[in-house]
Nucleic acid binder design. Structure first.
Lengths: 109, 109
DNA sequence: CTGATGTGTAAGCCATAGCTTACGGTAAGT
DNA sequence: ACTTACCGTAAGCTATGGCTTACACATCAG
């Protein structure tokens, strides 16, 4: 269940800013920190959390280190949310169509 | 930007447990608290946060109050994640095509 | 080899957030 | 009307987490 750590990671505003900055493409740490109101070590710590959550991957390029979004982490989060979406919609539909039973599972796809 | 509060809300493990309990259908507060290792007021506070984030909606039924998942909140989160997914994939593709060996990574699925 | 650049890590401070107990309010049952 | 059940809110305590400064290591330029 890696989506739990992913959600925890994306909860912090600064960390979201870091992550959204990476959306445009691979960026070194210093560049990210330059566009944010926090220090560079803070960005390093945020990247550490995002990496542990499987949301970003890094690559050493000379003295620098490029960070990029890891599509796999995003995919996991999407999968969890989609599963949630389907079940919630089924429950909602059953609720609207007259309420036979609170917890009733029709069909799942 | 309601997805920010949604992500913040889903970061807490207990709050995720509350939310996932609601996935099966509308449930009163007491039932949720009975299945969790926290007190009932704690669950109330969590539901408050989830409601403010647009993830759940409530309905008074007699002395009880039923909470259910609000599909709209889930949809917003999905939209944000999908937009992220597309841009991340584009950046990843451009990175692969542009440079010979940008990042050594396999395709997951 | 020396200095400069880029980065990760450790220690410490402080604000935030989650939990508990206590209380007030509304609805149903007798 | 009185009692019981169910729920939300307030106040307070404590732990977690994010930020900073200081330090250590690796790489490139000269």
């Amino acid at each position: 269940m890696a989506y739990t750590s992913a959600l925890t990671a994306l909860a912090d505003p600064t960390r979201r800013a870091v992550f959204e900055r990476l959306r445009r493409g691979p960026v070194p740490v210093g560049v990210i920190a330059a566009g944010l109101p926090v220090s560079r070590p803070a960005v390093s710590q945020h990247l550490r959390v995002l990496k542990d959550a499987g949301l970003v991957c890094d690559e050493a390029v000379g003295a620098r280190r490029l960070y990029a979004v890891d599509p796999r982490g995003v995919a996991e989060l999407r999968a969890w949310l989609d599963r949630f979406w389907d079940q919630a919609l089924d429950a909602f539909k059953a609720e609207v169509e007259g309420k036979p039973q609170p917890t009733k599972r029709k069909k799942s796809r």
